[in-house]
Nucleic acid binder design. Structure first.
Lengths: 340, 340
DNA sequence: AACGTTGCCTACAACGTTGTAGAAACGAGG
DNA sequence: CCTCGTTTCTACAACGTTGTAGGCAACGTT
C-alpha cells in the first residue's frame, strides 16, 4: 500500500533519480516526462519517506519545543505561537513535557535531540549551566533566564523592568502595603528572583520599605499555590492593600482566596499578575498584568534557531529581548465596561 | 562531533554489528566485550541516529496528536495526558495544530502522517468521513464524534447522557427556563448536536418545553463567544434562570457577561459547563461541569493505537467509551467553602 | 565535419542502522 | 580425536532517498 520512488519510476518508465528530481522540483526535466511522472505519483498516491530523506540529507525538518507543562496556559499559548512561527520555515514541531524536573530536562537536552530533530527551543525550569555545558550537537534556543551565561542562544524579556513597572502602577494608585506572591529559593526560579528584584526596586524608588512578611513564596506557580499563598498573607495580620503575583495563574488563585475571604478586588485589595494569559481577560474581576509579547518571543526563538542551523554553529551565543507592556484591567481599577 | 556505530566499533575494536547488539541489548555478548563497547559509547557520547534506525525498522517511535488549538485548555490538558500515556510505550508525541480548518485537517490526516510517524491521534472539528475514506497507511484513532461511522478506531464519551445529566441537575434545583449556549450548524460540531440532544431529552423528560429562543449558537467555543451569546440571551427579554454551556470556556465567558449585567450566579442565574478544565475550579464562582475522564481518554487512545500497530491493521474499527461524572460547584449551588 | 555546450536522463554510491547468514571458538559427549 | 551444539562475533545486504559523475542527444559555432 505504501509506494517508493522505485514503484513510481517503473510505472512512469524512468529512472528512480528522475522521479526524485521531479519530486524535488529539479528544472531539467522534459515537460512530458514530468507529466508522466506526476501522473504516476498521483495514481500511486506516492509520498516520500521522510526517514530516508532525512538520513540522506542530515536534516529532519522537525524541531522540538520543550516546556514544563502543556496545561499551564502561558506555555500552551507560547506553544501555539511557536508552532505557527515554525510553519513559516516548513518545520514541524515536536512538543516535549519536562514537568520542570531536572532529570527529564537533561534527558530532553541531550537525549531526545539525537538525530530526530534539527533544533530545540527550550524553556527550562531546573536545568543548570553545567547540564548544558557538555552538549555537543543540536542547536538550542533557551527561553527565559534560568541558565545564565549558558552556551546557547536565548530569548528573554526584561523581567526586572516589567516587574518594576507593574509595581509602580500599584504605587501610583496609592497602595502602600504591596505584597508579592511567587518568590522561590534562588537556585531555581530565576524569573522569580528577577521579578522580586523589580518589585523591590520599585518600592525603594518610592521610599517604601521592603517587608519580608509581605513576600510569600510559592513552590509552583499554579492557581492552587496562589490561593494558598494569599490565604497565608491574610492570616498574618498585616493585610496588604495590593498584591503583585509573579504570574497570572498565581493571581487567579489569589483572586479566588480574596473572594472567599469576603474581600473586594480592587476596592479592598488590588491584584496584578504577569503573563497576560487569556483567562485573565475574562476573570472576575479582569486581571491587570504584564503582557510579554509571546508571538514575538516565539518568532525570535524560531529565527535564532534558523540562523544557527543555516549559519555558523560556532558563533557566539546571542541574547534577544522581546518587548512587553502593561495590560491594566479591573483588578487594579474599577469597572471598565464589557470585555471582549 | 556526532559519532556513529562505526566510530564506536573502531574504538572498541569490534564490528559495527556487535556495537549494535550491545546497544539493543542482545544477549550473546561476552561481558568484557560488552564492557569495552559500553566504555567506548560513553567516551564518544554515542547516540543512535533515529532516522537511520527507523528507515531500517519501518517504525519511527513517534506518534502525532492533532488538535484544533493548543491554547484551548481542554486540548492542552488532553495533550498533557496523551504525552504521558505515550511515554509508557516509549513514544514521542508530535503535536499538530489544525486550527479546526478542514483543509489543514486533511493535510494532517494524509500528508503529515507519511513515514514520519507511526500513528495519529486526531481530534477533528471539520473533517468529514469522505476525507478519511481514501487514506491508506497510518493507523489513526479519532477523538470525539465528528466523523460518524468512519474507518478508524475512536474514543468517545457519552455526550448525550452527560448533557442530559447536567441539565437534569439544573432541573432538580428547580430551574425552569434553562438556556443552552453553543449550538452549531449540524454539518460541523457533532459534539454540539449531541449535547443539544441530551439537553432536549432532559427537558422533555421533565415536561418542560424546548424553546428555540433559549438556544444560543456559538461560532467557536471560546470565552468571547460565550460572553457574546450570554449578552444576546439577556437582551431577548426571556431571561433564563439557568444556562447550560456546551463547554467550560463558553461558561466562563457567560459568567463574565452575567457579572457585567449585574446578575448573581447562582442566585439569579445558574451556570454549568462541560469539560472540567482547571480554570473552572478557581473561577468566581467555581463552575459546575461535566468532567470527562481525560486521563482515561488519552490512555484508551494510546492503547488503541498500540493494538493497531502491533496487531491486525485490517481489523474492524473499535469504539471505546470513556467515563464521565458531574462536578457540582458554586455556579449551581451557594458557597461550598474554600477550594483547593 | 569537428567541436564544445546544453538539456535530459541514468547508474552508482552513500547516509547509519539492523536482520540474516554464517564463521570461528569453545565445551561436552561419544 | 571427531562430532555436534552453543556462544560469540563478523560480513554483507538492505531500508528509501539524494548527490555525484557521467552518458547520450541535439544544438550552435567554428
Amino acid at each position: 500500500m505504501r509506494h517508493r520512488l522505485k514503484d513510481v519510476a517503473e510505472r512512469a518508465g524512468v529512472s528512480v533519480k528522475t522521479v526524485s528530481n521531479v519530486v524535488n522540483g529539479y528544472v531539467h526535466v522534459r515537460p512530458d516526462t514530468r507529466a508522466r511522472v506526476e501522473e504516476a505519483i498521483a495514481e500511486l498516491n506516492y509520498r516520500p519517506n521522510l526517514s530516508a530523506r532525512h538520513l540522506r540529507k542530515g536534516r529532519t525538518g522537525v524541531i522540538a519545543l520543550a516546556v514544563p507543562e502543556l496545561d499551564i496556559p502561558y506555555f500552551a499559548e507560547l506553544a501555539r505561537y511557536v508552532v505557527t512561527a515554525a510553519a513559516d520555515y516548513g518545520w514541524t514541531v515536536l512538543i516535549d513535557q519536562t514537568g520542570g524536573r531536572r532529570e527529564q530536562e537533561r534527558v530532553v537536552a541531550s537525549g531526545i535531540t539525537d538525530h530526530l530533530i534539527d533544533g530545540l527551543i527550550f524553556s527550562p525550569l531546573a536545568l543548570t549551566a553545567e547540564d548544558l555545558a557538555g552538549l555537543d550537537g543540536t542547536p538550542m534556543v533557551l527561553l527565559g533566564e534560568r541558565v545564565d551565561h549558558g552556551p546557547a542562544d536565548r530569548v528573554v524579556i526584561d523581567n526586572v523592568t516589567a516587574a518594576r513597572e507593574i509595581t509602580d502602577h500599584l504605587i501610583q494608585l496609592g497602595h502602600r502595603r504591596i505584597a508579592a506572591i511567587g518568590s522561590q529559593r534562588t537556585d531555581e526560579g530565576a524569573s522569580a528572583r528577577l521579578r522580586l528584584a523589580g518589585y523591590a526596586e520599585a518600592l525603594r524608588a518610592a521610599g517604601l520599605t521592603y517587608d519580608e512578611a509581605l513576600v510569600a513564596p510559592a513552590p509552583a506557580w499554579h492557581r492552587a499555590d496562589g490561593a494558598a499563598a494569599m490565604r497565608g498573607l491574610l492570616t498574618t495580620g498585616v493585610r496588604p492593600d495590593a498584591v503583585f503575583c509573579f504570574n497570572d495563574t498565581l493571581a487567579l488563585g489569589a483572586l479566588r482566596a480574596l473572594h472567599e475571604a469576603g474581600l473586594r478586588v480592587p476596592e479592598d485589595v488590588a491584584v496584578v499578575g504577569f503573563d497576560d494569559i487569556e483567562d485573565g481577560r475574562f476573570s472576575i474581576p479582569t486581571l491587570s498584568t504584564v503582557a510579554p509579547d509571546k508571538e514575538r518571543i516565539a518568532k525570535l526563538a524560531v529565527e535564532l534557531l534558523a540562523n544557527r542551523l543555516d549559519g555558523d554553529r560556532a558563533a557566539p551565543a546571542k541574547e534577544l529581548k522581546a518587548p512587553h507592556h502593561l495590560e491594566l484591567r479591573e483588578s487594579t481599577q474599577t469597572s471598565l465596561g464589557p470585555v471582549s
